[in-house]
Amino acid sequence: MTAQYPKPLPQPLNPAPSKEFWEAAQRHELVMPRCTHCGRIFWYPREQCPNPTCFSDARLGKDLGWTSVSGKGVLYSYTVVHQPAVGFESDSPYIVCLVELEEGQGIRMMSNLVDCKVEDIKIGMKVEASYDDVTEAWTLVKFRPV
């Protein structure tokens, strides 16, 4: 399966800031970076808190940590893709979505909506994380209707 996977895998330019996120995904768990100074949960992982009233310059593991979230949220928006990205030809049409998570002031993740017919999609519908073990090394966090 690993050799056959035709789509782009995550290519972290620096694996350190997001290592825990991808490791949790392999355990089928969702974790989010959280600043221990101001308490803000944010997405995507980075080495500095993005809250403009904070300015923690700490590295993840010091003033920035991780917190488990439920993986539940609502569909903020979506698009049905008929003109696929490279590697996604056999999936076309597929659904790219923005999901607002329950926690963290509703931060948004971009992902795929799966197990959902196009005619059943509704902005605002409840969704939950769905873990796709695409290779032995990588698990992608996707979403499906609750």
Binding site: L13, F88, Y94
Partner: peptide, 17 residues
């Protein structure tokens, strides 16, 4: 950051998703 958090979901197409 798109290479890590968007491209695996087929986000990078000719049009702007």
């Amino acid at each position: 950051l798109g290479q890590e958090f968007e491209d695996p979901y087929g986000v990078y197409t000719i049009e702007d998703l």
